[in-house]
Design a protein around this nucleic acid. Structure first.
Length: 251
DNA sequence: GTTGAGCGTT
């Protein structure tokens, strides 16, 4: 029913964006819309998804028409349990209203309602960050790194080298082998794909020469006959006189 | 079928 984000940003003239984090990967905009709509007028709900897989990244953006409603939603929905996962609702940075939020209007409310959440932010390694950046790089920086982009094996080579640079771990080895296997498999497929085409003529050629010898066999068949004849002739020759002799002897 | 830090689509 709700096709938010599918047609692009609807009307972001006076909308306040909220960032919903820690949501399940299966949560969709339709699931968040009713929940957030209960606390205010939601004009748009958007969940960034992966370009390739299409799965949600685990966070969503909810746009409210009014900041007070958005704040209320944050106060009510932040820390709420959704699908067995506690979601975190906070104001989004991106957006035309982000400036206003930073100004202090929302911040004021937020300040007064300090809940002392220790989960605000903590230094943690980025894993998917590289993933996301890489994905975006491939699209926008295509022309900048045309050369590198075109070189697909470059990445594998780099990782390969990196793996080697690091310590040799069994797990790493497994990953490395997996990638190599994939490459090899794809190569195998390529070769196989092309092999029938190229080997096709070979097969025909193989058959051709086979046929030729086939005919040769025919000739051979004839030759054995002649050979037989000669063989027969030979014994016959020896035998020929034999009977004659025997006859002669006998007689 | 999987995972769990973080900020978005025309």
């Amino acid at each position: 029913m709700s096709h938010f984000g599918r047609s692009g940003p609807p009307d972001i003239r006076d909308t306040y964006s909220l960032l919903v984090l820690n949501i399940t990967f299966r949560t969709t905009a339709d699931d968040l819309y009713p929940l957030f709509d209960k606390y205010g007028k939601v004009v748009d709900v958007f969940i960034p998804r992966d370009r390739r897989t299409g799965d949600s990244r685990g966070f969503a953006f909810v746009r409210y028409k009014y900041a007070d409603e958005a704040q209320k939603a944050i106060d009510k929905l932040d820390g709420r349990m959704l699908d067995g996962r506690e979601i975190m609702v906070q104001f989004a940075k991106y957006g035309p209203n982000a400036e206003k939020i930073r100004k202090g209007k929302v911040m004021e409310s937020s300040s007064s309602k300090t809940r002392g959440r220790s989960r605000s932010r903590s230094p943690r390694p980025r894993h998917r960050d590289d993933y996301r950046d890489r994905d975006y790089r491939r699209r926008s920086r295509s022309r900048s790194r045309e050369r590198y982009d075109r070189d697909r094996p470059h990445r594998s080579e780099r990782e390969h080298h990196r793996s080697r640079s690091r310590s040799a771990s069994p797990d790493r080895n497994k990953d490395r082998r997996r990638e190599r296997d994939d490459e090899r498999h794809s190569a195998s497929r390529s070769e196989r794909s092309m092999s029938p085409t190229r080997h096709s003529p070979d097969t025909r050629r193989s058959i051709s020469p086979r046929r030729t010898p086939s005919r040769g066999r025919s000739d051979d068949e004839h030759s054995p006959q002649r050979e037989n004849g000669s063989l027969d002739d030979k014994p016959v020759d020896s035998r020929s006189p034999s009977p004659a002799k025997s006859d002669a002897d006998v007689s």
